[in-house]
């Protein structure tokens, strides 16, 4: 009905057509979702590389049950080398976790060699895994002290690699952030251009309702509501279309991320929960947040654009 459509003379359906803007904003949201997913994935990897297996220092103590050659702190004399080493490690700051491999773990680890020699009674060293806080180099100071208590102690530390990987992950995150920023800037420009075009097509009507006493906030509000809803709609489509892509990527990335316990098999397509479990929660949240963020960005951009444009009217 024509009366409804032209209600207040702005004819926004005509000024801001309902396909163009959602399509463009949707594409932007899609790109932003992919970039954000990349950032989140890089964050997950860097977490794993700095806190997980990547930052483990391995300490080997030969003849662990022999008496210690020097006393540990606090004046007590632990009976064995392994006890002395464990006590020293426990008293060292900067170590976030310690795990002594059990005999079973050790034999599993060494199985190929033990089977080759066929000697099950081969004396095994004790192996301790140390988790260190990122950026801490405890090995240099710790090793001489451990060697004083248990001659022949070996330490293997791979922080060089974990640090490099962490730096790489950090750069990837920065790139993703930059991509999101660029996409948002382009989206803002697109919304501004569309709004200006809409203002131009209804220039006469805007001049008239301004002369009849419509406030700037009324006119900008009408435009911003329309653009905000179109952007929300476009953002929703962008998110929905990004979802299968992200699921596929998450499925591929599962073995490398912190979620190592995900089965390598592809879930049944009907099993929504299995698919949802594939996505890290941060990614799910991002997909939920993208549409309202797009809507809000569109709304705010239009408010500013229209208000600036209306300044030309007295």
């Amino acid at each position: 009905m024509a009366r409804q459509r032209y209600h207040d003379g702005l004819a926004l359906r005509q000024a801001l057509p309902g396909r163009f803007l959602p399509f463009l904003v949707g594409s932007m949201a899609f790109l932003a979702a992919l970039a954000l997913a990349g950032g989140i994935a890089a964050h997950g990897l860097s977490q794993r590389w700095t806190h997980g297996a990547g930052a483990v220092t391995t300490v080997q103590v030969p003849s662990p049950t022999d008496p210690a050659t020097a006393t540990a702190a606090m004046g007590q004399t632990p009976a064995t080398r392994i006890d002395a080493v464990l006590a020293t490690i426990a008293a060292t700051p900067g170590i976030t976790g310690t795990h002594r491999l059990s005999d079973a773990e050790l034999r599993a680890l060494l199985a190929p060699w033990i089977e080759q020699t066929g000697d099950a009674s081969l004396p095994l060293p004790a192996v301790i895994e140390l988790h260190t806080a990122p950026g801490q180099d405890v090995a240099a100071s710790l090793l001489p002290r451990l060697q004083a208590q248990a001659p022949g102690v070996l330490m293997e530390h791979d922080s060089v690699w974990s640090d490099r990987l962490a730096a790489l992950a950090g750069s990837l995150q920065a790139c993703a952030g930059l991509a999101v920023l660029v996409v948002m800037t382009v989206a803002v420009c697109v919304v501004m251009a569309a709004t200006r075009a809409g203002l131009l097509t209804r220039r006469q009507a805007i001049g008239l309702i301004h002369a009849l006493g419509a406030t700037d906030s009324y006119i900008s509000g009408r435009f911003a509501t329309r653009v905000g809803l179109l952007a929300l709609w476009g953002g929703a489509w962008g998110s929905v279309l990004a979802l299968p892509m992200l699921l596929a990527l998450s499925h591929l990335a599962a073995p490398f991320t912190a979620m190592g316990d995900i089965p390598a098999t592809t879930p049944d397509w009907r099993d929504v929960h299995a698919w949802a479990a594939l996505l890290p929660p941060a990614l799910l949240w991002m997909l939920v947040i993208v549409p309202p963020a797009a809507g809000l960005t569109g709304w705010a951009t239009t408010q500013l654009t229209v208000r600036a444009w209306l300044r030309r009217l007295p």
């Binding site: 032209y6 009507a205 006493g213 419509a214 700037d216």
Partner: peptide
Amino acid sequence: ARLRRRIGAVKQDFGLLPDMSVFD
């Protein structure tokens, strides 16, 4: 804007919106 709502103006060129009905 508030003040304009208390002023009526008949323009020399009428100032009607051509794509809106007379009623509107």
